[in-house]
Amino acid sequence: MGRFLVIFLVIISLFVSGCAQEEPKNVVPESQVFAGEVTVEGTVKRYFADSPDRGMNMIDAKVLLEELETNRDQYFLVDIRSREDFEKGYIDSTDLNVAFAQVGYNLDLLPRDKTIVVGCYSGQTAGQVVAALRIAGYDAYSIRGGITGGWINAGFPTVGAPVVDPSAESSGGCG
């Protein structure tokens, strides 16, 4: 009897803590279900089949500029250039700067309810990131020609590292 009670309590506590820790499942969107099957192969097939209709998953710098001005909240802008180059001049509304090789470790930072726009130097590495993200179920585009080749070359504005002031007197509240 006592043992059952213990087991019961263990199960209950697992259930309770299990619920608490539960995260939203990575459900593959319906659009990626190909021939009724959700497989990597199917998703890849769908990626290739659909990409031409989406302009090869690229967005022109000019279109991006306009979109950022009007629909800022719908986009999540990722700059995959090196930190050094990023600091020299980046698009003001950048949401994340992460090197190409680190993208995989930072998938948790990428929103599934926004359009992810990836920018690199010339568009080549961003294109690879976009392909991987799309297969992983994100809605992603790369900046045509990259941030350097597309955006900066077009003369669109970038900003540099902000001037850092020493922070003001802090006066915390009390417990």
């Binding site: 003001d92 950048t94 949401d95 994340l96 700067n97 948790d108 930072l109 590292a161 902000p162 850092v164």
Partner: peptide, 21 residues
């Protein structure tokens, strides 16, 4: 959000790091 980005800049962090992690 712009202010938060500026505050986090020297730490090489973005608001999304704090939001998600």
């Amino acid at each position: 959000d712009d202010l938060n980005k500026a505050m986090l800049f020297p730490l090489k962090l973005f608001p999304v790091h704090l939001q998600q992690r």
